[in-house]
């Protein structure tokens, strides 16, 4: 059973990520939880909403998340596929989904997802991670603690550091006083 990191725990993964075959066809099992490509959703939405089992959709870095704005209620999960971890478009897609389009459910990073990018990915709003097969999932958990602060706002903590700084320093002096 494949595993994923979900809300900073290692869990078994029940989702099936569906990809198109070389000829463009795609086979969709009649039940079970599936994640379909964006184009499949756009073509077969009527059939897909009638399925039993949960539905997710996945985007490539080149896809526009704005295409999903009216459809969000149909999904339990949105995934963003990283063809290469150095392709940073998925970070902007995550920010848009979270901050602009109001997506609050599971946002998953899939593909070339490595330990050393987890901190930034999670700052941009990803909350589950299907790591590349060669990664040590247990060891990767420490990545979320790489930094204890960030200058920028994140999805979990929207206020940038400059709006929190005086509060933090105030707390510190209070602690020091105790």
């Amino acid at each position: 059973m494949a595993t994923i990191i979900s809300r900073r725990q290692v869990l078994a993964d029940n989702w099936q990520l569906l990809k198109r075959a070389a000829d463009g066809s795609i086979e969709i099992p009649s039940d079970g939880d599936v994640i379909v490509p964006l184009s499949t959703w756009l073509e077969q939405r009527d059939a897909l909403v009638k399925r039993t089992g949960q539905l997710g959709v996945w985007l490539e870095g080149s896809d526009d998340p704005a295409l999903l704005v009216a459809d969000l209620e149909h999904f339990a999960l949105i995934a963003v596929h990283f063809q290469q971890f150095t392709d940073g478009r998925g970070y902007s897609i995550a920010r848009l989904l979270r901050a602009r389009y109001g997506w609050q459910r599971e946002l998953r990073a899939v593909g070339d997802v490595l330990r050393d990018q987890l901190f930034y990915l999670s700052s941009c709003g990803f909350n589950t991670f299907a790591l590349r097969a060669d990664q040590n999932v247990q060891a990767a958990m420490t990545a979320f603690e790489d930094f204890s602060e960030a200058y920028q706002g994140s999805v979990e903590r929207p206020q940038p550091l400059f709006r929190r700084r005086s509060l933090i320093q105030h707390e510190d002096t209070q602690k020091a006083a105790i």
């Binding site: 971890f85 150095t86 392709d87 940073g88 970070y91 902007s92 920010r95 990018q117 901190f119 930034y120 990915l121 700052s123 941009c124 930094f147 960030a150 200058y151 920028q152 994140s154 940038p160 550091l161 400059f162």
Partner: peptide, 13 residues
Amino acid sequence: RQWSTFHPEFAYL
């Protein structure tokens, strides 16, 4: 400098 340091969205431009 502070805004761009470890900016999570723009590390892989």
